[in-house]
Simulated assay, not measured.
Amino acid sequence: MKRFILLGLVLLWTGCSSESANSKNAAGNSPESGKPKVALIMKSLANEFFSTMAKGAEKYQAENPDQFDLVVNGIKDERDLGRQVALVEEMIASNVDAIVIAPADSKALVPVLRRAKKAGIVVVNIDNRLDAEVLKTEGVTIPFVGPDNKAGAKKVGAYLASKLKSGDGVCILEGVLTSFNGQQRFAGFEEAMQEAGLKVIDHQTAEWEMSKANTIASSMLSEHPETKAILAANDSMALGAVAAVKAAGKSDDVLILGFDNISAVQQAIEEGKILATADQHGDQLAIYGIQNALKLLEDSSAVVEDVETPVDLITKESGAK
């Protein structure tokens, strides 16, 4: 009987040791390839900005195949927080070495990312900054790699101000209200309007969605016929506003501005349908995050620091591409 108990304990110890070894080796590498496995988790791949981000990351991995393996994930809807949380949980279960994430919500993703860090996974936040207070409450530090969204939006707003006169009325289409980048873009737009003496006569969230922006912009134009411009917190919403302005017969009277510099908006700027946008270099943004994650994997004692990435004003004069 004692021999059976001893044998069982040996087998149990061996199984535990094997499971630990299969998760990550001492260097933080995936055992299958000897390279770290990085998971990129984004918001809606239906949004061209994030599909461009994915392609940029995939190209970078293809150019550096010996450095890391890449897993790319995205959600179907910008607001599908539950699915994005589930993706993080799946990556934890898959024993990835690093997660680079553009969170759909600045607060809701923090608890599951804390669990990822507790599991020994390096986590890097890109695009939409996680909420500082929630991070503090959860007792976790996660570096942010991305642009200053407020500064970028202020550049767009200042450019609009140069085309209008003091007292003109402007409407703003906001992103998801719980997203830090949406909050910062609204703040940048609003600050630029205040400094120029322009009036924000209406602002509503269209939750990053083109169709919803079309509906809301149409309502804004009907309720506020004096509107001279619509500032949209992303390019998908700007395109929705373009359609609304056209339907209202005001394409020559209302200026449209966006944020992201997706290809459809590049064309719209060339055609004069959109005045300007901001380029935060989506094809490079995930790469910056991946590079930072790889550095942290190489040196676990490295100081976790935020990294500010470029954001540029794009107009017809500057060149939309």
Rank of each mutant, 00 (worst) to 15 (best):
T227G: 06
D105E: 02
Q291F: 08
G319L: 04
G56A: 00
S219P: 04
I230A: 06
L11M: 11
E32Y: 11
R114L: 10
M53F: 08
G15A: 15
L130G: 00
I201Y: 11
S179A: 15
V10T: 11
K117A: 11
K250E: 05
D202M: 14
L113R: 05
V100M: 05
K155W: 07
P111E: 04
I262V: 10
V307C: 06
M210S: 14
H203W: 11
F180G: 15
Q267H: 11
I269A: 04
A119R: 09
K117S: 12
L109F: 09
E58G: 09
K246F: 08
D66T: 11
P310E: 00
A153T: 00
W208Y: 02
Q84C: 05
R114S: 14
E191L: 12
S106W: 05
S23P: 15
M237A: 03
L6A: 14
L6M: 12
L297A: 09
L40S: 03
D148I: 02
L255K: 09
N292E: 15
V110L: 00
G282W: 07
I256E: 05
R114G: 10
V242S: 04
Q84K: 02
T215L: 13
Y60M: 08
E191I: 10
G74W: 07
V38Q: 02
V200M: 07
A26Y: 14
I314K: 09
A119F: 05
M42T: 10
N149K: 05
V254A: 03
S263T: 15
G188Q: 05
W208P: 02
A57N: 00
E191Y: 10
G56Y: 00
K321S: 13
L296T: 08
N234Y: 02
G188P: 01
I126Q: 03
G152R: 01
A62Q: 10
E90A: 15
K273L: 12
V242R: 01
T315W: 02
K154F: 07
T205V: 08
V38C: 01
A247V: 10
D69S: 01
Y159G: 04
M220E: 05
A158C: 10
S219T: 13
T205S: 14
V304M: 15
N25A: 01
P143T: 04
I290T: 00
V72G: 12
Q204V: 09
G240L: 06
A286L: 01
M237L: 03
S301Y: 12
V38Y: 01
K117P: 09
A247D: 14
L177Y: 09
V200L: 02
S218E: 11
M1A: 14
L221H: 07
A62K: 12
L297P: 05
S301G: 12
V100I: 01
V307W: 05
Q280G: 01
E19L: 15
L294S: 01
